[in-house]
Amino acid sequence: MALSKVTSLTQSSKLRTQSSLLPPALTFVLGIALWEAAVRGLNVPLYLLPAPSGILAVFFQQPGYLVRIGLYTFGEALAGFLIGCTLGTLLAAVCVRFGGLAEGLVPFSIASNAVPIVALSPLLGVWLGATSAASKIGVVAVMTLFPTLVNVYRGLSSPSADAFQLMRSYAARQREVFVKLRLPAALPYLFNALKICSTLSMIGAVVAEFFGGTQNALGVYIKSQAGILRLREAWSGILMACLLGIGFYLIIVALERWLMPWHVSFRKDRAA
């Protein structure tokens, strides 16, 4: 009886997963088909917009090269992601301990989100070197720091007043309150920030490379190919950036499910 119940739960979970993946998959296929049909039906010039079939053909002509330069750029994105998210998390913990600091950092958070990356990249290129990886890592770190700070600070502050009162009634120390109450409450907010920053990091690294970088960089490849109107090659580089960004996002989602199986959203999925 127990084995049959576990089997039925596993099968229902697989069916729910398949049904949740079906709408985005159909939307993607439909979008690509419409793109292909529009380019061919309207005779759109190659220098304006290539067909998806042409982009894929060029992509599979040099997959090793695209993977190599893509991983170089992804390394910059990952380094900036780790630096920005770590600093944002630590600052959020400090802001919870010292409330006045949080109010002082809010204007910086708003300003960082308001400054376009195309304005920030040249400045960091001057300070850290236009062709060095440090300037790209710096751009990504700035882009990911404040979203992480805001989300984690909100998570650490999310427990109710009754929960804090209960901890005080047990004579819990500040460290125990942080580890046993604030930290578990902040984990969903942290992973929400990580998922947002996983896509921001790849965008930041690629765009930063438009303003200078080595020939082994994905952003430099996209810019150079677009500059000589080799748009299929440029789009193949964009495709590689998309694949890396999606893969990074899915890794964060998998870590979230592994580290937070107790979260209410996952319990609802299992109970459905």
Rank of each mutant, 00 (worst) to 15 (best):
T27V: 06
W35G: 00
C95T: 14
T144N: 13
A234F: 03
V39T: 04
R97G: 10
G125L: 11
F74V: 09
P23C: 04
Y189R: 06
Q165D: 08
S160M: 05
G84I: 07
R68T: 15
L218W: 08
L128Y: 02
Q225L: 03
A271K: 12
L166E: 04
K136D: 05
T17F: 06
A254V: 04
A114E: 09
L9I: 00
L66V: 10
Q11P: 11
V150T: 07
S157T: 10
L30R: 05
A38L: 10
I252Q: 09
A205G: 01
S121T: 07
D269A: 15
A77G: 09
A193G: 00
I110C: 13
C95F: 15
L218D: 13
V152A: 13
L194N: 03
T17M: 10
G31V: 04
G129T: 10
K268P: 00
C85S: 13
L78R: 09
I83L: 11
K180D: 03
K180A: 12
L166Q: 08
I228M: 10
G84F: 05
S19L: 09
A193E: 03
M260W: 09
Q225R: 07
G219S: 11
S198L: 10
G219I: 07
R168G: 00
P184S: 01
S265N: 10
Q165C: 11
N151I: 01
K136Q: 12
G219T: 06
A51K: 06
L30K: 06
L15P: 00
T199E: 03
P63K: 04
R182M: 09
S160A: 05
G84R: 03
E233A: 07
W127P: 15
G31I: 03
L244V: 14
Q18V: 10
L244H: 04
I222G: 07
W127E: 10
A234M: 09
M1K: 08
L259P: 00
